[in-house]
């Protein structure tokens, strides 16, 4: 899909495969994330979006295929190695520790230690600094929480999601990946997350956004990766297509041809969806 003139993708994949027993969750998927863009990944339930981004963030090991970071082939040896490369992820199920407080979750897996012997020999945590920095991040992102020493399980679903988003944004160096970050959010909170995504992009950091919310996708995405049956069905610019056409591509009624036009792949379905080839 990328032509010779386009810049080196920040994160790229070719021919990824992941099987769970008889289920092929990723079936030869390609992926390209360009510098500084917001790339939306859309697809039906079970299309394999989560599996794809898990492979891209080290959370699962693909059975086959290649991943490139900044043009260089790379093998992630667990989520920690993707994180070490500056890739941060908001997972669909949030991956928070429910009984632990917000600041502890924010620093989970990369706790700060006290300076000097206390930290190096006694391994003592710098709880105060972690609380302060967590507070700064939450304030920075205008996330409304009453207390940072509150256990995450006492938060509303939306607040929990906000914490997970804030954690990823705070730590990301090269890529932020969000798997349905607005799924549990109200209109106002979704708007805040979209704003946040814009601000991250404005800092020059690319964002991968998985979403089922077409208006959100059309509002914020620079490009849309349509995922279908475990692989990439098309990559398009939202300005070139209508929402109905994109949905038709997602469901397989339309397909995108080499020139970027659409062809009817399933005439019955296309008729039902009220779309036609361009």
């Amino acid at each position: 899909m990328s032509t010779a003139s386009s810049p080196t993708p920040v994160l790229q994949a070719r021919g990824l495969v992941k099987r769970y027993g008889h289920v092929t969750a990723i079936d030869g998927a390609d992926f390209d994330l360009l510098p500084g863009e917001v790339l939306a990944v859309i697809g039906d339930n079970g299309a394999g979006k989560t599996s794809l981004i898990k492979a891209l963030t080290g959370a699962l090991t693909p059975d086959a295929g290649e991943i490139r970071l900044g043009g260089e082939p790379i093998t992630f040896n667990g989520p920690q190695s993707a994180r070490a490369h500056g890739i941060e992820t908001v997972y669909q199920d949030l991956a928070v520790a429910a009984s632990m407080d917000i600041a502890s979750n924010m620093f989970l897996g990369r706790e700060l230690r006290r300076p000097g012997v206390l930290g190096s020999v006694l391994r003592m945590l710098d709880k105060k600094r972690m609380r302060e920095e967590a507070a700064e991040h939450m304030a920075d992102l205008k996330i409304g929480l009453r207390s940072l020493t509150q256990a995450v399980e006492t938060l509303s679903g939306g607040q929990r999601q906000a914490v997970a988003v804030a954690r990823a944004v705070a730590w990301a160096r090269s890529v932020v990946v969000m798997d349905e970050p607005t799924a549990a959010l109200g209109v106002k909170e979704s708007g805040q997350v979209l704003d946040l995504i814009r601000r991250v992009r404005d800092k020059g950091m690319p964002v991968v956004l998985i979403s089922h919310n077409m208006p959100h996708v059309f509002e914020i995405a620079d490009r849309i990766h349509v995922h279908r049956l475990g692989r990439r069905a098309a990559v398009i610019k939202p300005s070139d297509y209508s929402m109905a056409e994109v949905v038709a591509i997602m469901t397989g009624a339309l397909a995108v041809d080499e020139a970027g036009g659409t062809v009817v792949a399933d005439s019955e379905a296309a008729k039902a969806a009220g779309v036609q080839a361009t």
Binding site: T89, A97, M100, L108, G109, E111, K127
Partner: peptide, 25 residues
């Protein structure tokens, strides 16, 4: 209560998958 190891033990008990996704071995 005062080391990263301790926090990881609690995180593991909360959810092994969440702990793993946060880079805890």
């Amino acid at each position: 209560s005062n080391t990263g190891w301790g926090r990881h033990v609690y995180a593991l008990g909360n959810s092994p998958e969440a702990a793993r996704l946060n880079g805890i071995r």
